[in-house]
């Protein structure tokens, strides 16, 4: 298992804050600044979004940040170039998240090799089928010491959750409710039952809850049911406020963790 992710969950089994942002947004070269500022403000894990033209699982906020990032010129080679020296500056666990097609065009093995060299810890590709991962790519991910993080939802049957758990080695991304990203309805009653059901399964991987987490209250509530929570759209929105990147990041993270 990847050491940075393993150590994180070993040292901080509860209350962990993970933040997603779209690389290349608001400006092309903000990637490193955003990562370093998030770490400075006490975030535990970072998901670096690789923008895609047709992000099917995303709501309007991340669609828009993706469009802007692509217009700014973000590409996978560009992102790798920006992240090249990142391990001299920070040890925070970094996970790349995106859709399969751009990774496929770059070449899956080449992608994993490059990510491994840079010191990336995990990869999330929501539209890569579990079966195909196991049959064709798992050995490659393991060779480059990358955790492949899978999503589960309230509709995922127990048997499939166990299968996913057996094929991954970082954490499990628990989608809070059936939705695209960016909905702010809060965590529904049914979600609580689902969180408890997953907790009682005693999986080998820790769970982190994402989708719909957008403020202090939803963050705290998610943390009651899992090792931590992931914030995406709410953070991307915060980056669009007036003010410097530094100010926006610090204000937002304080509002979540207070």
């Amino acid at each position: 298992m990847n050491n940075r992710i393993k150590n994180l969950f070993a040292n901080k089994p509860k209350g962990l804050l993970s933040v997603y942002f779209t690389a290349g947004f608001p400006s092309l070269n903000d990637t490193e600044t955003v990562i370093l500022e998030l770490e400075k403000n006490g975030v535990d894990l970072i998901e670096v979004g690789m923008p895609f033209s047709d992000p099917l699982a995303d709501g309007p906020t991340i669609q828009q940040s993706s469009t802007v990032a692509l217009r700014n010129g973000m590409t996978i080679p560009k992102l790798f170039e920006q992240l090249q020296g990142i391990r001299q500056k920070t040890d925070i666990p970094l996970v790349l998240m995106g859709y399969l097609n751009p990774v496929m065009q770059y070449g899956v093995e080449r992608f994993c090799q490059k990510a491994g060299e840079i010191g990336i810890d995990g990869i999330i590709l929501p539209d890569l089928p579990l079966r195909e991962y196991v049959d064709e790519y798992k050995a490659i991910f393991e060779k480059y010491n990358l955790s492949k993080v899978f999503l589960i939802t309230p509709q995922t049957p127990e048997e499939r959750i166990r299968e996913i758990d057996s094929h991954t080695n970082g954490f499990i991304y628990m989608v809070s409710s059936a939705s695209t990203t960016g909905k702010t309805l809060g965590l529904a009653e049914q979600s609580q039952a689902y969180f408890q059901r997953v907790a009682s399964m005693k999986l080998q991987n820790p769970g982190v809850i994402g989708f719909g987490i957008h403020d202090n209250e939803t963050f705290a509530s998610a943390c009651n049911h899992a090792s931590g929570a992931i914030i995406g759209s709410a953070f991307v929105k915060a980056l669009q406020q007036e003010g410097s990147l530094q100010e926006n990041i610090s204000t937002f993270i304080k509002s979540i963790k207070h």
């Binding site: 890569l128 089928p129 899978f150 999503l151 939705s179 695209t180």
Partner: peptide
Amino acid sequence: GGAYVPEMLYP
């Protein structure tokens, strides 16, 4: 072909 869908659509 295949079914390259996120987990939300899998069921």
